[in-house]
């Protein structure tokens, strides 16, 4: 019976090894899927950033000016009364 026990033990160790390899393979496959997904997101983000960076230059334009149109004031001027602080006219 001891011989049977050794054989069964070897079979058992072999089966356990196979299960471990299987679990490891599954983990690797899952990790690869996660990494690939993350990598695609990073790539997509990078592409988006690259498009922005190579588009219309905005970094050196006046801070309060937009790039797509002349900007109207928050509100139109109103009639003023009293002495003026300054004048506007041809110069």
């Amino acid at each position: 019976m001891p011989a049977m026990t050794d054989t069964q033990a070897r079979i058992g160790r072999r089966a356990e090894g196979t299960r471990r390899v299987g679990r490891a393979t599954a983990w690797i496959a899952a990790a690869a899927t996660v990494l690939a997904t993350a990598f695609r997101i990073v790539l997509a983000t990078g592409t988006s950033d690259a498009r922005t960076d190579s588009g219309a230059s905005t970094s050196t334009e006046s801070g309060s000016t937009a790039d797509d149109s002349l900007q109207a004031p928050d509100s139109a001027p109103r009639q003023g009364s009293g002495s003026a602080h300054t004048g506007s006219g041809g110069s």
Binding site: P77, Q79, G80, S81, G82, A84, T86, G87, S88, G89
Partner: peptide, 23 residues
């Protein structure tokens, strides 16, 4: 009353002889 700006053809004479004043 806001920043008051006098208007004229010539900015140098606008304050003394404004054609209009806006705030």
């Amino acid at each position: 009353g806001g920043w008051r700006v006098a208007l004229a053809d010539d900015h140098r004479t606008a304050v003394a002889a404004p054609q209009a004043v806006v705030a």
